[in-house]
Design a protein around this nucleic acid. Structure first.
Lengths: 335, 335
DNA sequence: GCAAAGGGTGAAATCCTTTTCAGACGCAGG
DNA sequence: CCTGCGTCTGAAAAGGATTTCACCCTTTGC
């Protein structure tokens, strides 16, 4: 391995000078050039471990997401990348797979590798422990999901408002028995979206939105959505519409409906988050649109700001969701 | 930051002994226990930079993929992760976005961070330079796409055979003017799949499969597929079927067809790789099924083997694709 | 003409761990 | 009783960069 020493020797200078050439110290142009030449000739590439060890900070930031197969998160990842692109920091992506143990391992790596910062969409509200990172002063931004009690910057969606708008739309379209399939208990996004759903129901009439006959908790994945929908359809009085709290579960829901010989808008379906490759779905569905890319970009901007040393008070940025109405024919069958 | 020194002091031993406790050296049980306790009490987490620097190898492997928004690659990534899971190595994902410059940067990071190994689905057959990694003895496995002239282990699909099977299927179904939308020039997968397509045409009759009227090169993305299909449809005599060389482009193709008021199987569509969330597509499409997950797992197994020190001769593993016939109604309209 | 300021440079310390080396000790075999 | 071997331990070197410090040499300002 060719080291800074080798370059120094070849260029007839000290290692300190070589370092200055690469990091913008004061070096006379002539010397700088001969160092450049020597480095090029020897094929010198700085050892980033040594550099990071000395600087007590690496030039990598980690992005920790719970499901790499969900287009929402990959789009978010693109946003993070594009923001980081403009700096000298690299992004590495870690997929926790909604597994708190895997997540814990990745957080440990981030800490041990002295990463410059971490953006995390927490696998769990309670078990995700950002304490060690925060204690060591590593900048952390929570994105999408907020870990409880963590003193960190956060960027999230207006989940509650989005959920409310979704169910209100179904109500306006004339549906009467509106179910909600939300995510796992303990995820902030699950709870908030469900809360919005309940609020819309409550506003629609006294006594509504208080019982859980039509509420199901699933796992934010295709299979979970399918199972939950099957379960709802097996009720003596099945729902005539459903608000689904994420994109993947909606795919399962659509599949369960098809199985049962039902299709929107006969049964109303409103998804929180666009169904991936939505152009393929006929008839097209209304959905709450999520600014996933911007979520990532905003989180990255915030993180970069912190890394630069911004000691501003903690912020929470809430991005607006928008209801995208797409059904050609709205409302339940028979209307 | 609490270091191994602090633990040593607290436990009344030397740093060397603490290191031995954590890395399985010979230490008397009593001493070992007091070290464990001291470490726990102080919340000691080893500095992975220092460790890697000393060991000349980190415990991270990099997976470099060209498009994180393509479910084929995310599934591959899951395969890599699951294989690595069983070892003490962590996987970090890097998205090159089909951009050779970004890819170069990530390869530089992998080298500079002394990563234990690299799995790469190359953004380009020619510009992807694995030389420095190989020169320094870092194990590298090429997956899916093979960089030209690189002396590395490889795991890939039988692209040519898959392409041939696809077009042969369309021929058998009675289509006459079969187009091919393949990936960018210079990607090994593009070329091979196209070669298979041509071979099937040639086998069908003399003089066929030799001109490029119905061949388009696109970019493996939705938009590229859409544009290419529009272009094909604008021909004086448009094709009556198309073999599309990847999943995302197929989505664009289906969209372009819908625009033009066409649908399969009136116009035949055969995709290399399942259309994501295929359960949503009606009528369902035949496709060449790709073992994406196994591709990742196999590549990781191979890499891990190399990292362990296996000095076996270079291998290329070719995984079989299978034609999945799904159309309820086969063949062109009017048959 | 002199003092102060500041640019350019190299030696050496530093970051934190692993690993080598040598020494101390206990025990078995002769 | 001595030799030899294996286990356990700590001091110190090693890994490769950055950064501090001290020094020299020019300028600049008065």
């Amino acid at each position: 391995m060719v080291t800074i020493q080798d370059v120094a020797r070849a260029a007839g200078v000290s290692p300190a000078t070589v370092s200055r050439v690469f990091n913008g110290g004061n070096v006379t142009p002539a010397r700088a050039q001969s160092v450049q030449q020597a480095a090029a000739a020897l094929g010198f590439a700085p050892n980033r471990l040594a550099r990071s060890l000395r600087k007590q900070r690496s030039s990598v930031i980690a992005l920790l997401i719970p499901d790499i197969e969900n287009p929402f998160f990959t789009s978010l990842a693109r946003g993070v990348e594009d923001a980081a692109q403009r700096t000298s920091l690299s992004v590495v992506l870690c997929n926790s797979d909604e597994d708190t143990e895997k997540e814990r391992r990745y957080l440990e790596v981030a800490l041990g590798e002295q990463m410059a910062g971490v953006i995390v969409a927490a696998a769990s509200q309670d078990e995700t422990d950002l304490g060690p990172l925060i204690a060591r002063g590593v900048p952390v931004v929570a994105v999408d999901r907020r870990p409880r009690d963590a003193e960190v910057d956060a960027v999230r969606l207006d989940d509650r408002h989005g959920g409310e708008a979704a169910t209100r739309h179904l109500l306006r379209a004339g549906y009467r028995r509106i179910a909600c399939i939300t995510g796992p208990q303990g995820a902030s996004t699950s709870e908030e979206r469900l809360a919005g759903h309940r609020e819309a129901l409550r506003a629609a009439g006294p006594g509504r939105g208080t019982d859980d006959t039509y509420v199901r908790h699933a796992d934010f994945r295709v299979e979970g959505g399918r199972a939950a929908m099957r379960d709802l359809l097996s009720l003596p009085e099945p729902p005539d519409a459903v608000f689904v709290a994420n994109n993947l579960m909606t795919i399962g829901v659509l599949d369960a409906l098809r199985e049962a010989g039902l299709t929107p808008p006969g049964t109303g379906v409103l998804s929180f988050g666009d169904v991936p490759w939505a152009s393929l779905v006929r008839p097209s569905l209304s959905a709450v649109e999520l600014p996933s890319y911007e979520l990532g970009r905003t989180a990255a901007d915030l993180l970069l700001q912190r890394i630069e040393g911004g000691a501003a008070p903690l912020q929470t940025v809430v991005l607006r969701t928008t209801l995208q109405v797409r059904e050609s024919t709205g409302g339940p069958a028979g209307r």
